[in-house]
Structure formats: C-alpha cells, structure tokens
Design a protein around this nucleic acid. Structure first.
Lengths: 97, 97
DNA sequence: TGATTGATTCAATCACGATTGAAGTATAAC
DNA sequence: GTTATACTTCAATCGTGATTGAATCAATCA
C-alpha cells in the first residue's frame, strides 16, 4: 500500500491504531490524565497480556508515552496525539504549522 | 464489544471506515469535490467490484452520499463527514452542538 | 430488440490483526 | 537468597475484513 498511495500510509496507520475498541477507550481514558497499567486494567475485562499488546500498538505509533514508577508503568497521552490524529483524518490539510 | 464499551462502538466503527488505504484516499479525493465511480476508479489499480465494496462501507457509515446521473453514479462527501470523524476521535468531547 | 457500458451484489478464498496461553523481565517485599 | 507483584514478550490459534471471480442489475445506444 505504501507503494501505491504513499500519502495514505502514515495517516491510515495512525487511524488504525485508534480504530479499535480497546485502544480507543484507552486513549479516551488517558485524555483525562496519566494512568498506570493496573488502573487501565480495571476498565477492561481482558487478559493482561492482551492489554499490553494494545498498549504496544499505541506506543509504536507514538500516541502514548510511558514512564516506570516502582513496579508500575504509567501511560500518558503523547502531547501531540490529538493533533496528529486530527491531521490524519482524510481531507485534513497536509501537516503544517 | 458493544456490550462492554458502548461508548466506543459508534466512533470506532466510523474510524475503522476511514482507516483503510483505499477508503481514506477516496474520502480525501471526495473532500475536493464530487466524483463518479469511473473517475475514482482511475486513481485505484484495483478491481471495480473491490472499489464498489469499499464505497459500500463508506455509504453504510453515512460518510458519503450517492446520486445517479445517467449510467454513472456520483459520490460526494456527506456534509457532516468531517465533523463526525473529528468527533469520533478518542478524547473528543461527546457529541453536541 | 440486443449489445454495451457503468456499477453493484454474491459466494468463496485469503491474509492479517486480535486473542489466547505460557514463559520471561523488572522491581519490591519478606 | 526466595516469593510476589506488575508488566512484557513469544509462539500459536482464531476471526474477520479485504480480496478475487463470476453473476447480476441499471441505463444508454445501435
């Protein structure tokens, strides 16, 4: 796909990261403030490793950042997450100031 | 998923509709103005029925509207498409005026 | 009428991401 | 040291959406 529609590759990847029920809800929760995995876990009746998988997708797309605090890992929304998602919507003007 | 995270179901569905290379590019093209299927077809090296499938997904999600003009079918971006996609982003405030 | 073009629908296959289970880090408590 | 907790990684399975091919519908033209 990157070969054929180079313009679409990056934004589509970002949108795909957000277009999942678990990841969408995680992002919505993090929009209200930082949370450790164990707290996120309480919101999701899914296995811990599955949640970890989804968090990894968000990390790999730069939508969230992490920091370890003792035994816990805190997840925060990346500062530009909202902006980047917004710019990734089709019809949005190409990235710029 | 609708059972567990009712809030996420609708917006995630919308984002999933946009989070595909073909559909994303179609939406980006339609953002610049109406186009018939045959014109869209020129932008995509894919089978006609496959393009039709993707257009159907966009239609079912109310992101595009159609009107027949002789043998051709014109596709247009739904007036509220951009707004609805924007509101579907996680962390966006709940829908309202 | 029949033929042709534009577009959609149907049924079946395929590919890839989500899910599962087990094993593996890292830090803290005992 | 050992145990426990929080989280991640790995390998394998499973489902579902994207893709393919054939058939079908709709409108125009000869």
């Amino acid at each position: 796909m990157a070969r054929i529609w180079p313009d679409a590759s990056a934004p589509v990847g970002l949108l795909q990261a957000a277009a999942d029920p678990v990841r969408w809800t995680v992002l919505a929760r993090l929009a209200e403030g930082t949370a450790c995995v164990c707290e996120l876990q309480e919101h999701f009746p899914i296995a811990a490793n599955l949640l970890s998988y989804h968090l990894r997708v968000l990390r790999d797309n730069g939508l969230v950042t992490t920091s370890r605090r003792g035994r816990w890992v805190d997840y925060s929304l990346a500062p530009d997450a909202w902006q980047r998602l917004r710019d990734a919507l089709p019809g949005s003007l190409p990235e710029g100031p």
